[in-house]
Design a protein around this nucleic acid. Sequence first.
DNA 1: ACACTTATGTAGCCTTGGCTACATACTACC
DNA 2: GGTAGTATGTAGCCAAGGCTACATAAGTGT
Lengths: 158, 158
Amino acid sequence: MSANEAKSTRKGRPAETIGEPALPDETEQAQRFEKARSAQARAVLEDYAELIDDLLTSGGEARPTDIARRLGVSHPTAIKSIARLKREGLAASEVNRGVFLTAAGHELAARARARHRVVVDLLVAVGVPRACAELDAEGMEHHVSDIALAAFSRFLKR
Amino acid sequence: MSANEAKSTRKGRPAETIGEPALPDETEQAQRFEKARSAQARAVLEDYAELIDDLLTSGGEARPTDIARRLGVSHPTAIKSIARLKREGLAASEVNRGVFLTAAGHELAARARARHRVVVDLLVAVGVPRACAELDAEGMEHHVSDIALAAFSRFLKR
DNA sequence: ACACTTATGTAGCCTTGGCTACATACTACC
DNA sequence: GGTAGTATGTAGCCAAGGCTACATAAGTGT
Ligand SMILES: [Mn+2]
Ligand SMILES: [Mn+2]
Ligand SMILES: [Mn+2]
Ligand SMILES: [Mn+2]
């Protein structure tokens, strides 16, 4: 390929003839997808931390079955994810006892809850019905960056 | 537990003493998480379909290495995901040839692209910097329901 | 004390979507 | 036509997050 100016062209395709849509830069696009993937990897941790914190705050324990039921998964699934939280230093528990959050876990939960609320509020503010906003926010929240979150807050303050 | 009115209380916890935050209904919460999980399961298919369609539209082929590079993954990963698209009737290709979309795949791509654009536009409209909007939208889009999307469109038309 | 019920934990399976290493197929070029 | 280089495909590994089935622990009630 020596000093070929463009793209990837095994069969000598014209490449960048003008007039066509023009795709985004390859590297930039790859970074977008990469960011989405890493956000996704954190999503489970965030949801568990937020939920555990909610359960603890609401005057009770955070027990695996409660967690499982609220997440809509089987209890072994919940236990396995809780194990990951522990492994990553976000939660702690002794056998046959409820789950607790470490300082880091509590931090994460607090941020997740605050973000969750802002996302729901923003959706409602732009006209999404409340119930739908609650539904959609559960997945969207994990992809909202700090910058976007700040913008949302500003927008909500008119 | 016979006709116990509430919750789950192995050690006879007071359950719903007033004053505390009051968690959302269990079933409703479970449905939210379930919806987020199923959206996530579709995310890869949507991104691949959208990207393949973009590549085809931009006057070229959709070749596995191009797809892989734009997604920021290795080519075997891309090939494996493309195999899933084929399995689900969204794409087709013969060996050592570029990938094509079936009617269903093209449909999916069109919807994904339209939604993607609206999501970016909405983010920008509420004050998120363009670059950040592009980044965040890549992950958020998959969780935006038709109802929310319609609300976004309405909002964008002032 | 014992039985019953519920909660917890373990084992083992599956799928998805990452990866590397290797083998094969094109295409270009001399 | 042979060789180099790129693209494609295959094999096999891993971790995450689902699941069921089973075993154990802990309360509840008679
Ligand atoms: Mn969530
Ligand atoms: Mn949340
Ligand atoms: Mn996307
Ligand atoms: Mn997209």
